[in-house]
């Protein structure tokens, strides 16, 4: 039975999934990078920005954490073209809409991890930077953020893992990534269990790769003097 499954999977499922893997990667990698970048900026604004800007950033984060990602994707793909400003409307293809949706949502979560990291910095660090004549921007950029990002990294890893798993939602707005492809294969072959089990393994591999990369990043960035796993 296992042999039978393997034959089926390797002949009917995996060729399709391998192609879809590339689509998923083209979805996940830019979303994760833009999400992280925007998340760091938003996180810094939410702690150190002027009050009104802080409020706006907080509202953005509440909105994007409070609504389901599917709804957000529907908005970017189906609703955005109907919003006309001065006769212009933005029409995104499914891929662009997905990346935009994932990045914005991911940034909202990342900013919360970054905010936690920023608040864990002792105020003496800021005082010392100010005493050297750094302005607030320089202080945040060169002294506070480099420390906060390191501390936030394990949490940020959670968000990347979630992003990989949630990337399957892009199939709902017609992107043929892993899950969408698995669904078509399941329909065409009438063997949903095999198709979905196989795609689950693909996601597990992606998550493994991401976790491995994050571990490497954490190790490279770790600094002496803080708690860390014994070697």
């Amino acid at each position: 039975m296992l042999e039978e499954y393997w034959l089926f999977a390797s002949e009917r499922v995996m060729p399709g999934l391998n192609a879809a893997l590339l689509v998923s990667a083209r979805l996940i990698v830019p979303s994760a990078l833009y999400g992280a970048l925007l998340g760091v900026i938003t996180g810094a604004i939410r702690v150190y920005g002027p009050k009104p800007v802080r409020r706006v950033a907080d509202a953005y984060v509440s909105l994007f954490r409070g609504t389901p990602l599917v709804v957000q994707l529907y908005f970017w793909y189906f609703a955005l073209p109907y919003i006309r400003v001065g006769g212009f409307a933005i029409v995104l293809d499914a891929m662009q809409a997905s990346i935009l949706g994932f990045a914005l949502c991911s940034a909202a979560y990342q900013s919360e991890y970054i905010r936690g990291g920023l608040l864990s910095i002792r105020s003496g660090q800021i005082k010392a930077a100010r005493a050297l004549g750094m302005n607030p921007m320089q202080t945040v950029l060169h002294v506070v953020l480099p420390q906060a990002v390191r501390r936030a990294l394990p949490g940020c890893g959670n968000e990347v893992v979630y992003l990989i798993k949630y990337s399957s939602l892009a199939s709902i707005i017609t992107v043929n990534e892993l899950t969408g492809t698995a669904r078509s294969i399941a329909k065409a072959t009438f063997r949903p269990i095999e198709a979905y089990a196989t795609v689950a393994v693909y996601y597990l591999l992606l998550v493994t790769l991401a976790v491995w990369l994050l571990r490497w990043l954490e190790d490279r960035m770790s600094i002496p003097g803080f708690e860390r796993p014994r070697d």
Partner: peptide, 27 residues
């Protein structure tokens, strides 16, 4: 539900904050 939960957590965060760490709005 999300909003209520996040409000509660933000309140908790403020209540248990330790002096000597950086805070909102102070660079």
């Amino acid at each position: 539900l999300t909003w209520i939960g996040l409000r509660l957590l933000r309140g908790l965060e403020r209540r248990v904050r330790i002096k000597g760490y950086s805070q909102e709005g102070s660079v």
